[in-house]
């Protein structure tokens, strides 16, 4: 494959996604049409116009427009694991703040991130996680008086 050709192929796929999203928006416009104020005004207009333009732009990207070529830099195995691990930890952090509270959630999440992202050992990651949690606790809760979730342990 020529250099940059992969990027152009991805742009065509992006065009297809644009068409699909635009079609979804047109469907929403059709659902909202009965609640119109008049034929050119109401909540259906913007979804309709934006949906139609997305379909048109998508078609242009797929069939007409030649976007500038670009290289897609794929992450190596280690970086891929780091990225995936980071995303999993972020979602887990979101859950942990609600259920376990901000303090426990932040200790666990920052420990995980220092392990996965920074590649630190257990002890160093734990120390850094403790420091970060403590500093943020003092700044956010003590100084700025921000109310953060306390979770089932009320911490």
């Amino acid at each position: 494959m020529k250099a940059g050709a992969a990027g152009m192929k991805q742009d065509r796929i992006g065009g297809v996604v644009s068409i699909a999203v635009g079609a979804g928006s047109l469907v929403e416009a059709a659902i909202l049409y009965p609640f119109r104020l008049n034929s050119t005004s109401g909540d259906f207009v913007m979804p309709g116009v934006v949906g139609a333009l997305l379909v048109v732009m998508g078609l242009l990207l797929v069939f007409v427009v030649k976007t500038p070529p670009f290289e897609i830099e794929r992450p190596d195995r280690k970086a891929g694991i780091q990225m995936l691990g980071t995303i999993v930890i972020l979602f887990a952090y979101w859950w942990a703040i609600s259920e376990l509270g901000y303090v426990i959630g932040t200790v666990l999440a920052s420990f995980g991130l220092f392990k996965v992202v920074s590649g630190y050992g257990w002890i160093r990651a734990a120390v850094y996680a403790g420091i970060i949690t403590l500093v943020l606790y003092v700044v956010l809760i003590q100084l700025l008086n921000i109310a953060l979730p306390t979770g089932i342990f009320n911490v």
């Binding site: 742009d11 992006g14 065009g15 644009s18 999203v21 635009g22 928006s25 913007m46 979804p47 934006v50 949906g51 333009l53 997305l54 732009m57 998508g58 242009l60 990207l61 427009v65 976007t67 500038p68």
Partner: peptide, 14 residues
């Protein structure tokens, strides 16, 4: 790419 920029703008509106 201006075309990709326009698609992104429309997505923002959406």
């Amino acid at each position: 790419s201006v075309a990709k920029g326009l698609v992104m703008g429309l997505a923002g509106y959406l």
